[in-house]
């Protein structure tokens, strides 16, 4: 594909001798645009380099305990003296364990996918095949509009409508009637927690996933669908056995991208998660916390740490989140490019 591109630079050299004399302007253009292209490298490199360098004392101080301890405690700023490990010191009593936040991040994002993926597929299928022509543009417009709505607006709705509803209606009803099922019994809580976070994250990623899934189905399916129907499949079989497998790559990639988004979402989760510290949720309604949310909610306390270790540990959290999302993205892109090649689209 790339080798067939007619690049201005090449053509100019090959086709137009006059262009040779004017390479000055081309060089300037190449250098300037090349510099711009370097910016994305520079940004990623700077973020990683700076955060790792800044977090280095915390990485040494916390060691592996960062991933295994569930106690996040910036220590007593009014205490006397400091404690030190690996040559770096922190406030007395300090312990920076991120297990609760890592758990919360992964579990909320994973559960979000469990809820959102089947729903998005169903909605996309039904949007393509069953919605009357006249209503379709309205439904499409709503989906696209909601995909662009700021997360803080979702958070607002979550705080004012969703959380009170879960706290006073859903959670008490579920815990009384289905309490015998593991993770559904126990305290109904306040509404802030895992369930609210998953609910709101699902609503945020569904429009994005529906839009992309709908597009790959539309781009791919018509002939396959009809061929399969002609062979006597029911319409549902035609859909799930012929069309869906053919767009699997695109769908998986969109799922992974949505997963990345759910992992890194900050404001909406912060507003409904219940901000758990040092504790795991007792059931699906219990409070959780995510890395992204904790960076916002704990920065304020971290700033009171005269040793600076709390701030550096937050940077270590940011590094971890960066790496997790980086891996997810790399995998997603790999799958997408592979799928594009198999499914015959231009990469």
């Amino acid at each position: 594909m790339a080798s067939m591109d007619i690049r201005v630079g090449d053509t100019a050299r090959a086709v137009s001798p006059a262009a040779l004399q004017r390479t000055g302007s081309q060089t300037i253009l190449t250098v300037l645009t090349g510099l711009a292209a370097l910016a994305s490298f520079a940004i990623i490199f700077l973020i990683l380099f700076f955060l790792v360098a800044y977090a280095y004392p915390a990485i040494r101080f916390n060691g592996l305990g960062f991933f295994t301890s569930m106690i996040w405690n910036i220590g007593n700023q009014y205490g006397s003296g400091t404690i030190s490990r690996a040559g770096f010191s922190a406030q007395p009593g300090a312990s920076f364990g991120a297990l609760v936040f890592i758990f919360g991040t992964v579990v909320t994002a994973a559960l979000t996918m469990v809820v959102a993926v089947p729903l998005s597929l169903m909605v996309a299928l039904s949007l393509v095949y069953t919605v009357p022509r006249r209503i379709r543009p309205i439904a499409n417009a709503l989906v696209e509009l909601m995909a662009g709505v700021p997360s803080v607006v979702y958070g607002l709705w979550g705080m004012v409508v969703l959380v009170p509803w879960i706290g006073t209606k859903l959670a008490p009803w579920v815990t009384t009637h289905f309490g015998f099922i593991p993770f559904l019994g126990g305290s109904a809580g306040s509404g802030n927690g895992l369930a609210a976070s998953v609910f709101i994250l699902a609503l945020m990623v569904i429009p994005i996933m529906v839009a992309t899934t709908r597009d790959v189905i539309l781009a791919q399916s018509n002939s396959l669908f009809e061929a399969s129907m002609a062979l006597g499949s029911t319409s549902w079989q035609a859909m799930t056995r012929a069309v869906l497998p053919s767009v699997r790559g695109g769908v998986v990639a969109s799922v992974l991208l949505a997963f990345g988004r759910a992992l890194g979402e900050t404001m909406a989760v912060l507003m409904v998660c219940g901000a758990a510290i040092n504790s795991f949720p007792q059931n699906v309604f219990g409070p959780v916390n995510t890395i992204a949310a904790v960076i916002v909610s704990q920065l304020e306390s971290a700033l009171t740490d005269a040793s600076g270790m709390a701030q550096r540990s937050l940077a270590e959290l940011a590094c971890s989140l960066f790496l997790i999302t980086l891996i997810i993205n790399v995998v997603a892109r790999g799958i997408m490019r592979g799928a594009d090649r198999r499914e015959g689209r231009a990469a």
């Binding site: 949007l127 669908f225 319409s235 549902w236």
Partner: peptide, 28 residues
């Protein structure tokens, strides 16, 4: 069905489509 011509209607197919429409209505 907006696309796809004559759909052989079976119970399973029909209930799956109904479910997908229900999802659509819920999400929308």
């Amino acid at each position: 069905l907006a696309r796809g011509g004559v759909a052989p209607k079976t119970w399973a197919s029909r209930s799956w489509w109904t479910l997908s429409v229900a999802c659509l209505i819920a999400v929308i």
